[in-house]
Design a protein around this nucleic acid. Sequence first.
DNA 1: GCCCAGGTGGGTA
DNA 2: TACCCACATGGG
Length: 221
Amino acid sequence: MTQEERAQEILTILRRTFSLPDWETTPKKPFATLIRTVLSQATNDKNRDKAFKSLSEKFHITPTVLSEADVKAIEEAIRIGGLYRNKSRVIKELSRAIVEKFNGTLDFIYSTSLEEARNLLMALSGIGPKTADVVLLFSANKPVLPVDTHVNRVSKRLELAASKADYERVRLTLQSLYSPNDYLAVHILLIMLGRKYCKARHPLHASCPVNMLCPSAKLGD
DNA sequence: GCCCAGGTGGGTA
DNA sequence: TACCCACATGGG
């Protein structure tokens, strides 16, 4: 079996095992996606959702409003998410930069190339590759596969990516194994697999549905 | 009461 | 380049 075929088998099994969540509720507007993603950095989903909801109730989620908001008020709103002093500054600063550099809109991501849009986003303080890639995939459907900690760990355990590959290597390897049409599903499904069956610092779960495709991926990391 | 969730930026050798 | 650490909350 080629690596491509094995990757496809893994995706088939994941689609059978998990159902993809309903995307009606996720924000599609790029700035809201950006703020949500910043709030999700190093934070679990529940706290992220509470923080985003709280922030949304106090402010319109727009660059103009948040660039003019009081940092303390942003802190208060997102405290429940953790890392709130850093993130409140990041949110205000990002908003200000978007107003100044991009006329208050992230719409350039629709009209520029993936690389250009990615570089422009990553030039902003607080946006690293993961956050940029999430915005580009989720809001602009760009052909990019974000590598979060689960995607990184799982793809290495399943030997889809080399064990020492850095962010870019993992991303490009996964992108080469899958069709751009599947990037979103692969991203979501690898995260779901990681949370349930392939946790950090634990051996691969005995009932992990892709075990038969991963003969040597037994050890925790 | 400890361990886990988990991205970015800044610092050190 | 390759690692280490700060950031901070809520849930198991």
